[in-house]
Design a protein around this nucleic acid. Structure first.
Lengths: 160, 160
DNA sequence: GACCCCGACGAAACAAAATTGCAAACAGAC
DNA sequence: GTCTGTTTGCAATTTTGTTTCGTCGGGGTC
């Protein structure tokens, strides 16, 4: 199920390449090569390997939510009643399936799940809570935080 | 300062293209064209326009945090003492500057900021809290949630 | 209705980038 | 020192992105 193939260790070249790609994956390999002192084909082979090994999970465009009418970002802390493996698995599956849920994490602490949700309006959010939380009798409680400002949004990982 | 240029409305073609790109932005334009019934140049013009208008914010590779030794994801709710515009701005700037902070949102509700943090170890997180929270006398309180499972992670927005 | 203008399209030509084949450099094992 | 693996750079090939150009269709004007 996992995409990882071999945990082949990353060297300094790989990390530099990753640092560039996670900022802009349309950078020409030639340019990357110049930046890291490697030929374009060498860079390309490393990228290919990292994709195969699952170091690079995906290559995506980041779409501005407001531009497509999804102007509201919401955080939700969800606390469940039963924490049996079965129930947790069920919750994970349900959350993962909802397209409005951009991110879902299973966490320790005072909550069990933290969700990042993107919707066009509060009415849509209200409808979603009805479906997802009130309609799920394993949800004990949930707390909502509405984002006023997306100060920093990304999936970039600290490198080097 | 903003990247938006003109809020030219998106049609069904644009949305279909975005849906493809936010899943895989390495899809050849010809392939996209076939999928949406448009020629490659038409697709390319639309993509170019959406980039210029800020509909497409960025094009990035998604790196697996574990693969680069950043195996711990943490959520933090931060509550500040003073909520003057000045202090909030200062906090935003500071959070945005930290590379370990992957995401930062300014929110309503029981907290003021929600952070998503990626670190190699709890020790690193501890050091970060010391620097970021204990070292900041405007932080009243913060709550930590450690992710046990990244159930769903992405920046994709619901389209159509 | 005839006209023009504007915008978007597709086909083809073109440019640039990615990919592959191959020989050489290098590192470690014996 | 020689062998074997791996990784590299260069050059040829292929794929992809980009530009050009002629055409089509809608809207406004006279």
């Amino acid at each position: 199920m996992s995409k990882r193939v071999q945990p082949s260790p990353l060297d300094a070249f790989d990390r530099k390449i990753l640092a560039i790609l996670q900022r802009d994956n349309m950078t020409p390999q030639r340019t990357i090569g110049d930046a890291v002192n490697l030929s374009a084909p060498a860079v390309q082979r490393r990228i290919k390997r990292m994709r195969e090994e699952g170091v690079i999970l995906a290559d995506v465009s980041v779409v501005a939510p407001e531009a497509v009418g999804q102007s509201i970002t919401i955080f939700v802390e969800v606390e469940v009643i039963s924490e049996t493996a079965d129930q947790i698995e069920r919750a994970k599956t349900e959350f993962a399936a909802a397209p409005e849920i951009q991110q879902c994490y299973y966490v320790t602490g005072e909550a069990d799940f933290i969700l990042v949700i993107v919707v066009p309006s509060m009415a849509d959010y209200e409808a979603l809570t009805r479906r997802l939380f009130f309609g799920n009798n394993n949800v004990k409680r949930f707390r909502t935080f509405v984002a006023m400002d997306r100060v920093k949004v990304g999936l970039g990982v600290p490198l080097e």
